[in-house]
Simulated assay, not measured.
Amino acid sequence: MLSDYRNTLYCSELQDVYSKKNDLEMRIRKSTPSTKVIYNRVKEGSSVYKEAFMGIYNYKCGYCGNSIKNISKTMFEVDHYICESSFKSKEVAGEMVNLILACYDCNRSKSNFFITNQYKATLNPDSEKIKDVFIRDDFYYIKISDNYKDDDFISSFYDKLKLSYQSRRLDYLLLNLHGLCERVEETQSNQLSSILRKLQQKRNLASLKLIAEDASFSEAQPT
């Protein structure tokens, strides 16, 4: 069993995330000294800082492990790990240390879920501890590990991010196929690529449906 549920055999491990994020923040502040909210610099899709931020996470979601190999870059967002509404100012909420790369599914599902002090370190995607909280089973599902299966807060986080959904399983399968296609002979690669395209189409349709549902929900909210 892999140590990080977000990675396949073909994925690189996250390395020096804290120091890389710190270096990026220093780069931003040196380039634009007037910057008050780091979040505003890295959230924009066309920003060189967004690209650098994504690189720190190996272009993968910090929560579920989905990758730009599966979905478009535009489907990745910068999440406030501790929700913005719990801070006194946007400046503090938007500090680099509180920002996580998240896929659209995870970010919108997580929404304003508040992570209490007791679980801040445990659930932080930048730390090693989250690897002990969630595992990937033999059928590619994300599961809560035995050590935390009776923890109500962990279960709430797991349910809120919809980590049990079939789409998470499909994303992981797609990542495995991408990695395998890059390593096998051309004939086998062509066969796998055909399967991959069909699964990719299915995944894209699911993403479009989620975006449409999210837009409909937002329009229905009172202003």
Results as ranks from 00 to 15, higher is better:
78 V>M: 01
45 G>I: 14
3 S>F: 15
25 E>K: 15
98 N>A: 00
25 E>W: 04
131 K>S: 06
10 Y>I: 02
32 T>M: 14
149 K>D: 07
168 R>F: 00
121 A>Q: 14
189 S>Q: 13
87 F>W: 03
150 D>H: 13
1 M>R: 13
111 S>Q: 07
181 C>Q: 11
36 K>T: 15
160 K>S: 04
177 L>K: 03
136 R>M: 07
211 I>R: 03
139 F>R: 05
109 S>M: 07
215 A>K: 12
95 E>D: 13
137 D>F: 03
139 F>T: 11
140 Y>P: 05
63 Y>W: 01
206 A>G: 06
106 C>Y: 01
149 K>A: 08
143 K>H: 10
140 Y>E: 10
59 Y>D: 06
9 L>P: 06
6 R>L: 00
5 Y>H: 12
112 N>Y: 06
64 C>T: 00
204 N>I: 08
213 E>V: 11
130 I>A: 01
193 S>L: 15
101 L>F: 01
113 F>R: 06
12 S>P: 06
12 S>Y: 06
18 Y>R: 13
181 C>M: 14
122 T>L: 15
66 N>P: 01
13 E>T: 09
115 I>Y: 04
48 V>Y: 09
67 S>E: 00
147 N>D: 15
137 D>A: 08
165 Y>G: 05
209 K>R: 12
171 D>P: 01
158 Y>F: 15
219 E>F: 13
66 N>C: 09
222 P>F: 01
45 G>A: 12
201 Q>L: 11
83 C>Y: 09
57 Y>W: 10
145 S>L: 08
215 A>T: 08
37 V>N: 12
169 R>D: 01
66 N>K: 03
120 K>A: 03
95 E>K: 11
173 L>I: 15
182 E>Q: 15
158 Y>V: 09
116 T>S: 14
177 L>C: 00
15 Q>L: 15
100 I>M: 04
214 D>W: 11
88 K>I: 09
162 K>C: 09
24 L>T: 05
114 F>M: 10
73 K>S: 14
115 I>D: 06
136 R>N: 06
156 S>I: 06
97 V>D: 13
112 N>Q: 14
19 S>E: 12
169 R>H: 03
161 L>Y: 04
183 R>T: 10
140 Y>R: 12
152 D>W: 07
111 S>Y: 10
180 L>T: 12
37 V>E: 11
33 P>S: 00
109 S>V: 02
18 Y>V: 14
107 N>K: 02
214 D>H: 13
170 L>Y: 01
159 D>M: 12
101 L>I: 02
85 S>T: 10
80 H>N: 00
110 K>Y: 02
77 E>W: 08
190 N>P: 07
134 F>P: 02
5 Y>A: 05
112 N>A: 13
36 K>Q: 14
105 D>F: 14
53 F>C: 03
137 D>K: 04
63 Y>K: 04
15 Q>I: 15
13 E>N: 11
178 H>P: 05
12 S>V: 05
76 F>W: 01
107 N>I: 03
200 Q>N: 08
157 F>Q: 08
